[in-house]
Design a binder for these strands. Structure first.
Lengths: 226, 226
DNA sequence: ACCGTAAACTTATCGCTGTTAGGTTAGGTG
DNA sequence: CACCTAACCTAACAGCGATAAGTTTACGGT
């Protein structure tokens, strides 16, 4: 019995020492892995530290608390979401296809990152619901800068959806009743699908592809000028 | 300083002794209250016991574990939800109004009971996602009886929605493409609104009444025969 | 009136959690 | 070589859900 504990650092006596940036990145990597495989509650600081080959307290030199781990992970998630929703406005294709693609990408990306999605869109962690003005516009001075930045990033993906819809309205392809409400409704539909599948599994519903198709169909027809 | 601790039972030495049924009901009452005001994680067994005027362990004589408390509370929630969605099929009014009313009632009820809603529809507690067959039909023998019952109850509200839509399809008021998908999509929209407002607050979105209105409008127009 | 018994409740404790204070060690600079 | 600080550790705290085993209370049968 030389190495009694696997998953710990190889040499118990001689632990590797890393510069802060690398260690931070490594902690994030293993934390993300544990959060995804075991969930936020189950993945304890001790287990994360174990997987990283350090003691739990060392984590606190790189992150304020457990929530900060998730916040950092969520930041990456938002970047990916924005990227996924930034489809090239290829003018050649049908403009309505842009909206369709937007929603498909949103749902796909959400389901591909269920744990991060749950974190940022399905739990009211304090740092994700700061005191905001209408439409999530941060009220300057009330909220720490980094939180504001993250919130802005979060709203960015919604902004893409909203401006997309506004463009279609302007082009006369959608009704002009309530563009803002349209965006909220489209988001609600997409979010509803993602969150239901995340919590209840996909076996209880219409197969996801057909579901998205049907939903988009309803939305398109429902928002078209009569 | 006669009563040093408020919130505890009045007389520390002479605690009231209650028959099981009453105590159980009382525990449920204070637990529901704490869950709603402080959230599930924050409301600890010790705090619940304190508020009930007993020791934490006494709770375990009435409930298997903390989750069982929520399960019991959720059962009441489901009863209320089904009741809220069981609108009298008043044949005199527009049949499409039934669907409209169904969705309004769902959203309203969900927002009126955010903590229970979060529990049953936004978290994957094991007893709410047992191994189920397609469409949530319980596979007999695999799951404890009481869980099956609750799951059935849970699906009942969805069943109301589904049969409502099927009736409208049969009457030719809605397209016949994919009635099952329609029901899922309508639910996704309603659930999306409720869960977004629960996690993000209502200040970031279209005012709730207009939001519901817009959403229902889209759904109706989107499902109508072309 | 007594007594047994079971229901109702408690004490003590376990292993776990996130987190902190303060001490130690290694790597690089003057 | 001496020093300093970044990187990491040990020890510990308060609180968590949960269990085992002990105590008290009320009530039904004799």
């Amino acid at each position: 019995m030389v190495n009694e504990k696997v998953g710990r650092a190889a040499n118990p006596g001689k632990r590797t020492r890393l510069p802060a940036a690398e260690r931070r990145a490594q902690i994030l990597t293993v934390a993300r892995d544990l959060f995804v495989t075991q969930g936020f509650e189950q993945a304890s600081m001790r287990r994360i530290a174990d997987a990283a080959g350090i003691t739990p307290t060392a984590i606190y030199d790189h992150f304020a608390d457990k929530e900060a781990l998730l916040t950092a992970i969520a930041a990456d998630f938002f970047d990916g979401l924005v990227a996924a929703m930034t489809v090239p406005p290829d003018a050649a294709t049908d403009p309505l296809d842009l909206l369709r693609q937007l929603m498909i990408n949103y749902v796909r990306y959400g389901l591909a990152h269920p744990n991060e999605y749950r974190l940022v869109f399905m739990t009211s962690l304090s740092r994700f619901v700061p005191t905001l003005g209408h439409r999530g516009l941060p009220c300057a001075g009330e909220v720490p800068e980094d939180v504001v930045q993250k919130t802005v990033k979060a709203m960015q993906s919604f902004g893409i959806l909203q401006t997309g819809i506004e463009r279609l309205v302007a082009a006369g392809l959608l009704r002009a009743d309530d563009p803002e409400g349209f965006a909220d409704s489209v988001w609600a539909m997409g979010h509803g699908i993602v969150s239901l599948v995340i919590t209840k599994g996909d076996s209880n519903f219409t197969p996801i592809d057909r579901w998205i198709d049907t939903s988009i169909g309803i939305l398109m027809d429902g928002m078209r000028p009569r």
